[in-house]
Design a protein around this nucleic acid. Structure first.
Length: 138
DNA sequence: GCCAACGTTGGC
DNA sequence: GCCAACGTTGGC
């Protein structure tokens, strides 16, 4: 079981869109490194759903792989289907992710990391999920 | 909208 | 195989 992070611009396709659609085909990845990660995905792998180019950018929820990688454009590119798991009550914004020492070393916080599909450690995944589900009260 | 940091392309 | 030019990503 592996853990991943995928980026999407919410204006384009947000966690709410995924919630509504239940699942979607994750196509259009045109970066070799990201493609190689897609090819490593297995059904059941969990995914941090990250909103990029947003105000602020944030980890917005959790998705999962629901269909194994398949060729999108033979033989070059690959895709998977991802399904909705949960939307965070308390999305973790990028500054918050950066500040948390438990989340040190995540690819998404590294400067210039433009990879739209990234591996995430189990520890990092669980910290983000836990914090995301917590509803902060005054 | 700006721009820095990347990845990719293409001439040589 | 180098590297300049170009296009894209994504934080701010």
């Amino acid at each position: 079981m592996k853990y991943w992070l995928i980026k999407s611009e919410p204006d384009c396709y947000s966690i709410d869109d995924l919630k509504r659609d239940k699942k979607t085909a994750w196509t259009g990845v045109r970066n070799y490194q990201a493609r190689n990660f897609i090819r490593e995905m297995k059904v059941g792998d969990l995914i941090i759903y990250y909103h990029s180019s947003a105000n602020p950018p944030s980890a917005a929820g959790v998705a999962k792989v629901v269909k194994a990688p398949y060729a999108e454009k033979e033989p070059l590119w690959s895709a998977v289907d991802v399904g909705f798991v949960e939307k965070f009550e308390n999305p973790l914004t990028l500054p918050v992710i950066k500040i948390n020492p438990k989340l040190d070393g995540m690819m998404v916080t590294q400067q210039g990391s433009r990879l739209s599909v990234q591996p995430v450690s189990k520890e990092h995944f669980e910290v983000i999920r836990k914090l995301g589900m917590v509803v902060s009260r005054p």
